[in-house]
Simulated scan of single mutants.
Amino acid sequence: MFPDEFDYYEATSVSEALDLLDEHSGRETELLAGGHSLLPTMKSGLSSPDVLIDIGGIDAMHGVSVEGDTLSVGAMTRYSDLLDVDAAHEHAPAFMAAVRQIGDRQVRNRGTVGGNLAHADPASDLPGAALASDATIVAEGPDGEREIPVDDYFFGMYATDLGHDELLTRVEIPSATDAVGAYAKKPSPSSGYAMVGVAALLETDGGTVESARVGANGAMDHGVRLEGVEDALAGTSLDEDAAAAAAEHATDGLDTSMMLSDLQASADFRAQLLEVYTRRALTDAADVAATPAAAD
């Protein structure tokens, strides 16, 4: 199928992109990053923007750096480029564990971190990982730059705190070089998206969990923290028994009647998957913590 006609603009700077958003504020406008979500919906007729603003060529939104105790990832950084940065794996283990499982090689060569988080598909892999990593979403708009804590960022199906006149410019992740991270998901057999995905970031001392952040995607209409699991882990020894016991709290605080339900999995089945994949993520993190490299 072919998309409807639209006006195409290629922005070369953040300010130019913001000017274009303002200039066309009265029309249906979409931003083009990697295009994996937008282009199929345009071809199918589900999305018919009047204006398409390509932000993929904005140099300032590409690249990865470590500034003090923060890993900064440009919004237009492709997954494959991020995977090649050793510092990203060192400073953001849970986030990178999720990036490694996104799509396939072709998807990772084109898709972008910012495009993923701005689109906020509940079945994508990064919402749970961003929550587990305590990320900050940095956006720029007419009033300048603002920082959005990830706990305040996701609202619902494809809904975030980003304004229609704002641009997600980078993602900042606190350094977690002393922590272990893992991501486990049940992929959809048809798309590879997460029917349920769970990311865990654990700080340990002598085998005891000092702090934990656990985030999930695919279960609800937006990424969520699994605070019941986090509370259950605190002060425990990081082993399979502790992982299994903590995973039993995966649905604590969640309205299970609001869990996603579709042809692939009912809400009840997703609740079961959430517990299973929480346990797997925690067990994987425990295995990482037990390796000599982690101990060093």
Rank of each mutant, 00 (worst) to 15 (best):
T29G: 14
T29I: 02
E30T: 13
L31F: 02
L31K: 01
L32A: 12
L32Q: 11
A33C: 08
G34I: 07
G35V: 03
G35I: 01
H36C: 01
H36A: 12
L38T: 02
T41D: 14
K43S: 10
G45H: 08
P49G: 07
P49Y: 05
P49Q: 02
V51A: 12
V51G: 06
I53S: 07
D54N: 15
G56R: 14
G56Y: 09
G57C: 01
G57R: 11
I58C: 03
D59F: 14
A60K: 10
A60D: 12
M61C: 09
M61V: 00
H62N: 12
V64L: 09
G68Y: 10
G68D: 04
D69L: 00
D69P: 00
T70D: 00
L71F: 04
L71Y: 08
V73Y: 13
G74F: 10
M76K: 10
T77Q: 10
R78V: 15
Y79P: 05
Y79F: 09
S80I: 09
S80L: 07
L82F: 14
D84L: 14
V85K: 06
V85S: 08
D86P: 06
D86I: 04
D86F: 06
H89L: 02
E90Y: 10
E90R: 15
H91G: 00
H91N: 13
A92T: 05
A92E: 03
V99A: 13
R100T: 12
R108H: 00
R108Y: 01
N109Y: 04
R110S: 09
R110K: 11
G111Q: 15
G114M: 05
G114R: 04
N116M: 07
N116Y: 14
L117I: 08
L117W: 06
D121M: 02
P122C: 02
